[in-house]
């Protein structure tokens, strides 16, 4: 890891924190305030130009980060928590419970992520909260699959066997021995799922299922700009570039985290991880481990 990479990574993390917690530091103009400057191209006064209603696109791009980041972070967090709970349950429970739980997980794995998300939004209504829930539920089976197979592997480990021999209950063994050992794996998996989370969140808001207008959001702003594509390229381009940069950053830090935390991850996760990587990635994802 070179020093340059560290600098870039820290700056990027700082930027994400600012976008999330204090977007006002980066943009001074109100993102929903309209003006008479309709569809003006990028200039000194409007860095990214203005939209049909004369709103500042730079400001909207800065403020539009929050719903995307919140939805993808919380969604993935929810999915990891639920996935660990289901995976551990499936891993330590008697055979028949395991069979029932994991078959259920398979059913959800058999449906495309976006379809699950759409079904959920069809029932729960649109909004950022629904997107969090949709990502949470749609990503859970992937986490559960990987965790379950790791739990089964860990249960055969000597220290777990030893704990059992000394009379440790299943609950205690799960809490003291299994969970701590799963942590690295889940963190790595979660960080590489963030990129897909961002993609899913922006796809859903692109379809108009996210924030309520006129609130700024990368996905819905990108979609709104599409109608003026011919005469105002900047409307869709800047939110699009922002999405792209965020996904790149997420994948890059995910890769990095994996190398730091667990150099053998690619080998240990083996088949199930690769399958997950393939399934979770709606659009791509990180198959770097494949070539590693």
């Amino acid at each position: 890891m070179s020093r340059l990479k560290w600098v870039v990574l820290s700056l990027a993390v700082l930027l994400v924190l600012l976008l999330l917690l204090a977007p006002g530091v980066l943009a001074h103009v109100d993102p929903v305030a309209t003006s008479d400057a309709h569809l003006e191209g990028p200039s000194g006064s409007h860095l990214f130009g203005t939209d049909l209603l004369g709103r500042d696109v730079y400001s909207r791009t800065v403020y539009g980060a929050r719903p995307v980041l919140v939805a993808s972070f919380l969604g993935v967090l929810l999915a990891s928590a639920a996935g660990v709970a289901i995976g551990v349950l499936g891993g330590v429970a008697p055979r028949w419970i395991n069979a029932v739980v994991m078959r259920l997980v398979d059913v959800f794995l058999a449906l495309p992520v976006l379809l699950i998300a759409l079904i959920l939004i069809a029932t729960a209504g649109s909004g950022v909260r629904s997107i969090v829930l949709a990502i949470g539920i749609a990503f859970t089976p992937g986490f559960a699959r990987v965790v379950e197979s790791s739990v089964r592997r860990l249960r055969k480990a000597e220290y777990v066997e030893a704990a059992r021999v000394f009379g440790s209950t299943t609950l205690r063994t799960s809490w003291r021995h299994l969970l701590p050992n799963l942590l690295t794996e889940v963190v790595v998996l979660g960080s590489s799922a963030i990129g897909w989370g961002i993609l899913t969140a922006t796809t859903l808001s692109f379809l108009g299922l996210g924030v309520r207008l006129p609130a700024p959001d990368w996905g819905s702003d990108l979609a709104a700009g599409a109608t003026n594509l011919a005469d105002a390229w900047w409307l869709s381009t800047f939110p699009g570039l922002a999405i792209m940069a965020t996904i790149l950053l997420a994948n890059f830090s995910g890769d990095h985290l994996m190398r730091v935390l667990d150099p053998r991850a690619g080998i240990r996760f083996g088949r199930s991880f690769r399958r997950l990587a393939i399934r979770l990635s709606r659009h791509g994802g990180d198959i770097a481990h494949e070539s590693a």
Binding site: L222, W233, G240, M244, I247, H283, G285
Partner: peptide, 17 residues
């Protein structure tokens, strides 16, 4: 690397443009 990170709905707009 770029292909993985560009959302297809964004790529679609860029190609149309």
């Amino acid at each position: 690397f770029a292909g993985v990170a560009v959302p297809y709905f964004f790529l679609a707009l860029l190609l149309v443009l």
